[in-house]
Amino acid sequence: MYTTINEDGIINNYATEPEMYYSEYPSPEQQSRYAFQGAIAGVFVMAIVLVALVAS
């Protein structure tokens, strides 16, 4: 942690910043998994909307 003290004696603490890195493009397997998760999420949202319409 990085600490500074100003002329009035007030202490400021700064968190250490993590090392940055570039992300990698997802593999075809990951892309298909993301598409499957998106489809499941779409079906889930559609089911919630249909239940709300039937209940109202």
Rank of each mutant, 00 (worst) to 15 (best):
Q31K: 12
A39H: 07
N12K: 07
P18Y: 01
G38P: 01
I48G: 02
V51N: 01
P26M: 12
G42V: 00
Y2T: 15
M46E: 01
S32Q: 12
M20D: 08
V49S: 12
A52K: 10
Y2S: 10
Y21K: 14
V54C: 15
S27H: 02
M46D: 02
A55C: 03
Y25C: 07
A39M: 08
A47N: 04
M1Y: 04
Y14C: 05
P26R: 09
F44Y: 05
A55Q: 13
T16W: 05
M46T: 00
Q30S: 08
F36A: 13
G38C: 09
M20T: 12
F44D: 02
E29A: 13
R33V: 02
P28G: 03
G42H: 01
S27W: 07
A41C: 14
A47E: 06
S23P: 04
V43H: 09
S32W: 05
Q30G: 13
V49P: 05
L50I: 15
T3E: 07
Y25F: 06
L53V: 07
I48T: 10
I10T: 12
D8F: 01
A35F: 03
D8M: 01
Y2L: 14
G9T: 11
I40R: 10
M20S: 13
P26W: 07
I11Q: 07
P26F: 12
I11L: 01
F44S: 00
L53W: 00
I10D: 10
I48K: 06
A35K: 12
I11C: 01
